[in-house]
Design a protein around this nucleic acid. Sequence first.
DNA 1: TTCACAAACGCCTCGCTGAG
DNA 2: CTCAGCGAGGCGTTTGTGAA
Length: 341
Amino acid sequence: MSAVLRKPKTFKLRSLHSEKKFGVAGRSCEEVLRKGCQRLQLPIPGSRLCLYEDGTELTGDYFWSAPDNSELVLLTAGQTWQGFVSDISRFLSVFQEPHAGVIQAARQLLWDERAPLRQKLLADLLGTVSENIAAETRAEDPPWFEGLESRFRSKSGYLRYSCESRIRSYLREVTSGASLVGAEAREEYLRLVGSMQQKLQAAQYNSSYFDRGAKAGRRLCTPEGWFSCQGPFDVDDCTSRHSINPYSNRESRVLFSTWNLDHVIEKKRVVVPALAAAVHDAEGREVDWEYFYRLLFTLENLKLVHIACHKKTTHKLHCDPSRVYCTPAAPRRKRHARHRL
DNA sequence: TTCACAAACGCCTCGCTGAG
DNA sequence: CTCAGCGAGGCGTTTGTGAA
């Protein structure tokens, strides 16, 4: 079909150094170039058109097969365009400037970006740049606290609370495990749970696990607040190298709630039933509640994992039968007694 | 084999209560 | 009054199971 009989083809056109775009239609490459140069007040000789997306030059051959409403860049003699990658490069160069300018530039680019991949790259960069890891108080980083109750005044304080509330829910579940034992042993079961609760209270429900300000052995993160995924329960480490810093910005704080403290020996399927059974079958022996305490509430049996590394399948692991009851002090006393004899 | 459902793994928000 | 402690209930996900 002759070009003159076709409907004009439409494009969005921009110059190399401006965000502004305008619509152009034409029946040939030359026509679009001529209109563009006129609009942008650029000389026609030496000028050419490229696809904004990947820098492909728009030639007579390619003119009709280019997608409708393609975005074009008008280049004058000597200018080059390799596609949006060079736009990112230009954006990255802004990193030399103060943060406010970087954020402004990223928002500007993201504003009318529709391609998902580029959206993600820009949004990630924007997220990275808006991080305020060092800030700790509400005054230093108000956006971080958006949506949280006013009583939370520091990041560490909130994360301590968040950890504590997870541990509390474990304790609640252990308490409700009382229904697994018969009425005759229930009192003893609850007494053991009471001992665990006391120990937990003394340990502030192990809330230090999420507190970057805690002492080295007590926290799961670096002093800056970086947490690393410890990998699935049956694997030594995380092959995906997941990591997160919930102290950095609001988004990371929210995302961190999808990370799990996974019981290696499962709490509900294994540990709680084992505790109930131990109480039921005690026959005078004393249940070593501290062993169960370690399985239920401490890093001895807890792994911090990214949601993708959280396997919800049966772990098929069991408590160590030899540690369920306190080892009687009797043999020692006997030996002692023998000595005396 | 497919599908629906229950159960278990988590975490969060909400509202109540009682102590300081 | 504030705030910690607590429990109920909800959400989202995966797994196991049994009926069609």
